[in-house]
Design a protein around this nucleic acid. Sequence first.
DNA 1: GTTCCGCATGAATCGATAG
DNA 2: ACTATCGATTCATGCGGAA
Lengths: 304, 304
Amino acid sequence: MKKVIKYITEDKTEVTADLYLGDCKDELLHLPDNSVDLIVTSPPYADQRKNTYGGIHADNYVEWFLPITQQLLRVLKPNGTFILNIKEKVVEGERSTYVIELILEMKKQGWLWTEEFIWHKKNCYPGKWSNRFRDAWERLLQFNKSRTFNMYQEAVMVPVGTWAKTRLKNLSDTDKVRDTSKVGSGFGKNISNWVGRNKAYPTNVLHLATECGNKKHSAAFPEELPEWFIKLFTKENDTVLDPFMGSGTTLLIANRLRRNAIGIDVVPDYYEMVKKQFTPLELYICEPKVKYEKHKPKRRYAVR
Amino acid sequence: MKKVIKYITEDKTEVTADLYLGDCKDELLHLPDNSVDLIVTSPPYADQRKNTYGGIHADNYVEWFLPITQQLLRVLKPNGTFILNIKEKVVEGERSTYVIELILEMKKQGWLWTEEFIWHKKNCYPGKWSNRFRDAWERLLQFNKSRTFNMYQEAVMVPVGTWAKTRLKNLSDTDKVRDTSKVGSGFGKNISNWVGRNKAYPTNVLHLATECGNKKHSAAFPEELPEWFIKLFTKENDTVLDPFMGSGTTLLIANRLRRNAIGIDVVPDYYEMVKKQFTPLELYICEPKVKYEKHKPKRRYAVR
DNA sequence: GTTCCGCATGAATCGATAG
DNA sequence: ACTATCGATTCATGCGGAA
C-alpha cells in the first residue's frame, strides 16, 4: 500500500512524502536500489512496545532485524548514511548484547560501522528526583556503505565557547542568540561566513532534551534528533527514509527541511495518523520566504 | 614487588595503599580470591601509549586482556563491581570492534555486563575532518559477578561538596548559551535549572572535563570519575583495586575517602612516582571529620 | 582577594610522504 | 603494496601571572 503526498513550495520546489503500510521487510522491496540518501530510524526495541509491534524477543532480535538491514543496504545510495537509534534493554539485571551482536553481523553484510553518536538526554523535570538511576543516554549508530559518504558539517555548527568572547565583543547577546536560532531553523546556510569565527563544529555527543510535552505518541523522539542528522547528511531535495516511522516525526522534519520523505509502518493506526498529519485542511496561498524563518512554510499540496 | 603504606586517620581507622610493580596479569596472582570490593581502571587502549605500555594492537587486544579479566573475576568479591574505562579508536574510517568483542568474551568468562555509563568529556581533543566530528565520550563499562552487587546510591545522591555542586558552581556561559540554543522548546532547557538544588540526580552519564593541567604524567583521568564510583560502590574501609594505576589517581581518591587501595603498574617510573606521592613530607596532626568532605583528610602514615 | 587574559595541552583523525 | 611516521587541523580547560 502506498500513498504519495506532494508539496509544492513557493519556489516551485517539490517535496514528497511517500507512506507505506506494511512490514518494512516487505515494503522495502518496492524501493529501487541506491535511491535513499539518509535512513533515520528507531526500531522497536526488543520486548518493548508489545502492544504495537508484537514484541521481538531479545534472543531473536538480530535474526529478525538482519533481513531489514539487508534491504536498507540495497536502497541506500553509495554515499548515503544509516542512523540507527537503539539501546539494549536490561534483562534480569544484565544488559542484553543484541545491539553489539547486530553491529558485528551488519559488518558481515557489508556495512561500515563508522561512528557511534551518543544522545545525552537532558532532564525535563529538574525538580523531580527518583530513587533509581535514570538512563540518560541512547546509542545512535552510524553505518555507511562507503568511507566517502556525504556530510554537510557546516549545517549543524554550534556557538563557540566563551573562551573566544574577546572576538565577539562587538556582537551583542541578542545578535548571538538570533544567529543561533537562525541556524537552528535549518535555513540560511553558511552563516559562519559573515558572522566570523563564533561557531564550532559539534562533537559526537548530542546534548538534547527529551521530548517533554508531547505524550500523544508512544515513541518520544525529540524533533531535534532527526533534524540534526537530516541537516548533517542530506541537502535539499534529497530523500530520507524511516522504515519504522511511528508517529512520523522524521518525515515531518524532512519535509519541513525540503527533503523528500519515505515512511513505512506496519501499524494501521500509525499509518492513518501520519496520513492525516500530511493532509492539511486548507490550501494555503504561498508566502515568500521570511527572514529567520520563525514559521513553518506554507505550501500547496496534491495527492496522486 | 610490593609496598604497603598504612595511614591511620584521626578516628583510629586504618587505610592502606598496596603498590605492586609488574605486569598485572602476574601481580594479580598475589591477591587472594574474593578480596576486592571495587575495581576501577583504565587500561591502555589499543595502539595507544606506545612509549609507556608498548601499544597493544587492536587485533590482539581481546586476547591480551582476557587473562587479566580472568584474574579480576577471581579477586573481586561476589558483590563487588568492576568499572572499565575504555574507548575504541577509528581504524581506516571505521570504529574498531574490539571493545564490544571484549564484552562478549567477558560474558563467557562469567561476568555480568550490568551497565554502561557514559563519560561525556567536556573538553575533548580538537580537530576537524571531512567525515567525522570530534570524539567526546568514553565508555565506562560496569561488570559484576552477581546481580545483587553492593550499591550505595545515597552516597552520590547525597548533597553538597560532591560532583554536582562543584560542577554547578563552575557553570560556564558556554553551558548556558549552548544548551539553550540547541533546545528549541519546552523547559528544562538549561543546566542552570539545577543551580540551587541541594541534591544531585544521578544518571548514567557523567559530564566531566579531562585534566590537562597536570603536565607531569599522561593520565588524563579526572578525579571526579573514580571518586563517583568509589562512593557509589564501596563504603569506608572497603578495598579498591586499579590494575593499571598509572599516576595513581584512583588510589589517591580511595585513600582520601577512607578506602583501602591496591595499585599495580608495569612501568617503574609510575610505580616510583606513586610511591613518592603516598609519602608525605611531614606528619600531620589529625583533624576531625568535616561535613561533606570539602578537605582532604590529614593523616599519619607508616611504611612497612 | 578578585577578575582577566595568555598559554600549553590533551586516550584524536586524516591524508600525504617515507621506508 | 603495505606499514610506519608526520604535519595540519581544531577547541575547551585550568593554570599562572598580571591588572
